[in-house]
């Protein structure tokens, strides 16, 4: 098998059954019931969030004080969000997206490298290594923040650019978690890519790096997209480490910044917080929409045989 045949396989059209008139009963059995499930699940998933949306549109309301949703539609919370000098929402938004994307790309890259090694190579300590990755993440890091604080302040003494207050330093901390459960997910997926592809390419004279970067990575695109998304979401919502590392308001992330609206018992601004939360969900949605075509975009690794 050569690269050419591989490409042919990739571009081969799906076998689309001939169009035929569906009877309602048949339609329901095949896809209709899926819509019923979909509607029920969407209601379950979205309903509690309507409260958040409703609160964000209500300038004086509380978060859960009442069952009357959307009594007022007022976008002043959204407008105000961008006009607070001490709480620079726009900066948080950009910070979160940049930090999230960089971390996601880094996590996918480091994870894929490791997963490839675990999947394709046999070496001593492979099994133990896999197990350790799982166990390390389970260790209760009760004082993890203190340790990371000490670590970054020490690193900052050598490379001020990576020390406390640096977003780059925060990204490095996040990349520390690149090898973990996500590596497993990729590992499992790599295992389903037939070794024969590697071998064929090798015969064609490709180096291991070329095989990995130009062939394998494409075949596992769905799982790369999933891991990237998981990593992005995790980074977007990470609070504890970010709140200790990033110190200036303009450098903070959404999770940290938004929390300042509600952290004081006596001056909570739930409606503003809700508006911020609604906006902060948009990048996640957008990334998911963008990545969907890779996740379920038709071609699957297994079809390359």
């Amino acid at each position: 098998m050569t690269a050419e045949t591989l490409m042919t396989a990739e571009t081969a059209p799906r076998v689309i059954p001939l169009k035929r008139k569906l009877t309602p009963g048949r339609w329901f059995r095949e896809t209709g019931w899926r819509h019923v499930v979909g509607i029920v699940v969407v209601a379950f998933a979205v309903f509690p969030l309507l409260y958040v949306l409703s609160a964000s549109l209500n300038p004086t309301g509380t978060l859960v004080g009442s069952n009357a949703l959307f009594r007022s539609i007022d976008f002043s919370n959204y407008v105000d969000l961008f006009n607070l000098p001490q709480q620079p929402f726009a900066a948080w938004f950009m910070n979160s997206i940049v930090i999230g994307l960089v971390t996601a790309v880094g996590t996918v890259f480091l994870g894929a490298l490791a997963a490839y090694a675990f999947s394709r190579m046999r070496f001593t300590g492979r099994r133990v290594g896999l197990l350790s990755l799982l166990l390390v993440q389970m260790f209760p890091q009760l004082l993890g923040v203190v340790a990371i604080f000490l670590l970054l302040s020490a690193i900052g003494d050598i490379f001020p650019i990576l020390g406390l207050g640096s977003q780059l330093g925060l990204i490095l901390v996040y990349l520390g978690g690149a090898l973990g459960v996500n590596t497993y997910l990729m590992y499992g997926f790599f295992n389903t890519v037939p070794v024969s592809i590697d071998e064929a390419a090798k015969i064609d004279g490709a180096s291991h790096a070329q095989i990995f970067f130009t062939i394998i990575l494409r075949l596992v695109a769905p799982i790369l997209a999933v891991v990237g998304l998981l990593s992005f979401v995790a980074t977007m919502s990470e609070f504890v480490v970010a709140s200790v590392v990033l110190q200036e308001p303009a450098r903070q992330t959404l999770a940290v910044g938004l929390y300042t609206f509600v952290s004081q018992e006596t001056s909570k601004n739930w409606t503003m917080f809700a508006a911020g939360a609604v906006l902060s969900a948009i990048p996640v949605m957008a990334l998911f929409l963008y990545l969907q075509k890779y996740i379920v975009g038709g071609l699957t690794a297994g079809s390359v045989k």
């Binding site: 940049v98 994307l101 960089v102 880094g106 003494d157 001020p160 650019i161 640096s166 780059l168």
Partner: peptide, 18 residues
């Protein structure tokens, strides 16, 4: 894009802000 962003971040990191 991520690489560029990384560089941009590095550029505006608080250099020598000890």
């Amino acid at each position: 894009a991520a690489a560029v962003a990384l560089l941009a971040l590095a550029g505006c990191a608080p250099a020598g802000e000890t």
